[in-house]
Computed example of a mutant assay.
Amino acid sequence: MKKLTFFITFCILAICLLGCSATTVVKDKINGVSFVASRDTLQQKNIDPILNIGANAAAIMPFGFIRDKNHPQLQFNSERQWYGERYEGVKQYIELLHQNAIDVMLKPHIWIWHGEFTGDMQMNSEADWKLFENSYEEFILLYAQLAEETQTEILCIGTELFNFVDQRPEFWQQLIKNVRAIYSGKITYAENWDKVDRVPFWSDLDFIGVDAYFPVAEAQTPTVKEAIAGWIPHKKVIASLSKQNNIPVLFTEFGYRSADYAGKEPWASDRHEGAMNTKAQVNLYQALFETFWDEPWFAGGYAWKWFHDHERATATGNNRFTPQGKEAEMLLKKWYLNSVN
Score class of each variant (00 low, 15 high):
Glu327Ile: 01
Lys195Asn: 13
Ile15Ala: 11
Val90Ser: 00
Tyr183Ser: 11
Phe35Met: 07
Ala229Gln: 09
Gly119Met: 01
Met61Ser: 07
Asn246Tyr: 05
Lys279Leu: 08
Pro169Tyr: 06
Gln151Cys: 05
Lys177Arg: 15
Leu241His: 00
Trp267Ala: 06
Leu241Gln: 00
Glu295His: 05
Thr9Tyr: 12
Thr314Asp: 06
Ala217Phe: 04
Thr159Cys: 04
Trp193Glu: 10
Trp113Ile: 10
Lys3Val: 10
Ala190Met: 05
Leu106His: 07
Ile50Ala: 04
Asn134Asp: 13
Lys225Ala: 15
Phe171Val: 03
Met1Ser: 07
Ala229Ser: 09
Asp294Trp: 08
Thr291Trp: 03
Lys3Ala: 13
Pro323Thr: 10
Val199Glu: 06
Val224Asn: 02
Asp211Glu: 05
Asn318Gly: 06
Gly54Gln: 14
Asp48Ala: 14
Ala315Thr: 05
Leu250Glu: 03
Val224His: 02
Asp128Glu: 12
Glu226Val: 04
Val216Asp: 02
Gly209Lys: 01
His272Val: 03
Tyr189Gly: 05
Arg198Asn: 14
Leu131Val: 10
Arg86Ser: 10
Leu97Asn: 04
Ile232His: 14
His71Asp: 13
Trp304Cys: 00
Arg80Gln: 11
Thr322Ile: 00
Cys156Leu: 03
Met330Pro: 00
Leu175Thr: 08
His308Asp: 11
Thr252Gln: 08
Ser78Val: 09
Ala287Tyr: 01
Cys11Ala: 15
Ser21Asp: 12
Arg80Tyr: 04
Val90Thr: 01
Gln145His: 15
Glu153Pro: 00
Met123Tyr: 14
Glu88Gly: 11
Ser38Asn: 04
Ser258Met: 01
Ser125Trp: 15
Arg271His: 07
Gln73Phe: 12
Ala275Cys: 03
Gln44Asn: 12
Asn163Ser: 12
Gly89His: 02
Ile187Gly: 11
Trp335Pro: 04
Glu88Lys: 15
Ile157Gln: 07
Thr221Cys: 08
Ile238Ser: 04
Ile15Leu: 11
Glu133Phe: 02
Phe139Ser: 05
Thr314Asn: 10
Thr322Cys: 00
Asn77Ala: 12
Ile182Ser: 03
Thr188Asn: 07
Asn245Tyr: 13
Arg180Ile: 02
Asp194Ser: 14
Asn52Ala: 14
Ile187Asp: 09
Ser34Asp: 03
Ser240Gln: 12
Tyr261Thr: 03
Leu288Thr: 02
Ala212Lys: 00
Tyr87Ser: 15
Pro296Phe: 04
Glu138Tyr: 01
Leu17Ala: 13
Arg257Ala: 08
Met61Asp: 00
Gln75Phe: 14
Ser240Ala: 11
Phe7Gly: 14
Ser203Cys: 12
Thr252Leu: 08
Asn178Tyr: 07
Ile15Asp: 02
Ile182His: 01
Glu191Gly: 05
His71Pro: 01
Ala212Cys: 08
Val25Ser: 12
Asn246Ile: 02
Tyr83Val: 11
Pro62Cys: 06
Asp270Gly: 09
Glu148Phe: 07
Glu95Ala: 11
His310Cys: 02
Arg312Thr: 08
Leu146Gln: 10
Arg67Gly: 05
Glu265Gly: 04
Asn319Arg: 08
Glu149Ser: 14
Phe65Trp: 10
